[in-house]
Amino acid sequence: MISRLLAALAPLAVAACATVPATVSGYGPLPEDPHAAVPALRPASVVAPYQHRVPVEPGNWRNLNDRQAPGGGAS
């Protein structure tokens, strides 16, 4: 029984190994294409979003919580 099942599934396994050309698969142009577009490289700074912050004394947490509450503590 198992051998018949394996014999029936063998063509499906072989068909799954078939390759698809790169132009059909949608992954872009072929690597050997000399006219393929290449995106320009831009330098990116690794420290651009840095902001210097200094330690501060803890404040009143209830006032901070009230300011961040919906309505902005307008009560």
Rank of each mutant, 00 (worst) to 15 (best):
residue 47 V to F: 13
residue 58 P to H: 07
residue 28 G to I: 10
residue 59 G to L: 09
residue 48 A to G: 09
residue 21 P to D: 00
residue 59 G to E: 10
residue 17 C to I: 05
residue 23 T to V: 13
residue 6 L to Q: 11
residue 69 A to N: 07
residue 44 A to H: 05
residue 38 V to P: 04
residue 48 A to C: 02
residue 4 R to W: 13
residue 63 N to M: 01
residue 45 S to D: 15
residue 69 A to G: 00
residue 4 R to P: 05
residue 26 G to M: 03
residue 13 A to S: 06
residue 40 A to N: 05
residue 46 V to H: 12
residue 24 V to G: 07
residue 68 Q to N: 09
residue 57 E to P: 09
residue 46 V to F: 14
residue 11 P to Y: 11
residue 13 A to D: 08
residue 41 L to M: 12
residue 43 P to M: 10
residue 25 S to C: 04
residue 65 N to C: 09
residue 14 V to F: 09
residue 64 L to T: 04
residue 52 H to P: 07
residue 42 R to G: 10
residue 60 N to S: 05
residue 66 D to Q: 13
residue 6 L to P: 00
residue 5 L to N: 00
residue 52 H to L: 07
residue 2 I to R: 02
residue 58 P to I: 01
residue 14 V to Y: 04
residue 33 D to H: 11
residue 64 L to N: 06
residue 14 V to A: 08
residue 30 L to N: 14
residue 18 A to Y: 08
residue 24 V to P: 04
residue 65 N to H: 11
residue 67 R to C: 07
residue 22 A to T: 13
residue 19 T to C: 13
residue 73 G to N: 03
residue 43 P to K: 02
residue 28 G to L: 11
residue 55 P to L: 12
residue 58 P to K: 03
residue 45 S to Y: 06
residue 12 L to Y: 13
residue 40 A to P: 15
residue 30 L to R: 15
residue 25 S to V: 08
residue 29 P to E: 09
residue 47 V to D: 15
residue 49 P to N: 03
residue 57 E to F: 02
residue 36 A to N: 11
residue 40 A to R: 13
residue 27 Y to H: 13
residue 10 A to T: 06
residue 35 H to R: 10
residue 18 A to Q: 11
residue 22 A to M: 08
residue 75 S to N: 13
residue 63 N to V: 01
residue 6 L to I: 10
residue 26 G to R: 03
residue 74 A to L: 05
residue 3 S to C: 05
residue 26 G to T: 02
residue 64 L to V: 09
residue 54 V to K: 08
residue 39 P to S: 12
residue 25 S to N: 06
residue 14 V to N: 00
residue 27 Y to R: 14
residue 43 P to R: 12
residue 28 G to W: 12
residue 66 D to V: 12
residue 5 L to Q: 03
residue 52 H to D: 15
residue 23 T to S: 06
residue 7 A to G: 07
residue 47 V to S: 15
residue 24 V to E: 05
residue 67 R to G: 02
residue 30 L to T: 10
residue 10 A to H: 00
residue 62 R to I: 10
residue 8 A to S: 07
residue 54 V to G: 11
residue 36 A to K: 15
residue 46 V to T: 14
residue 15 A to N: 06
residue 13 A to I: 04
residue 54 V to R: 10
residue 35 H to M: 14
residue 53 R to E: 10
residue 71 G to N: 03
residue 16 A to L: 12
residue 71 G to Y: 00
residue 39 P to D: 07
residue 51 Q to I: 12
residue 18 A to P: 03
residue 70 P to R: 14
residue 48 A to K: 05
residue 75 S to G: 09
residue 57 E to D: 11
residue 56 V to M: 14
residue 32 E to L: 15
residue 7 A to N: 01
residue 60 N to L: 00
residue 73 G to V: 04
residue 34 P to W: 02
residue 69 A to Q: 08
residue 52 H to I: 09
residue 21 P to V: 03
residue 34 P to L: 00
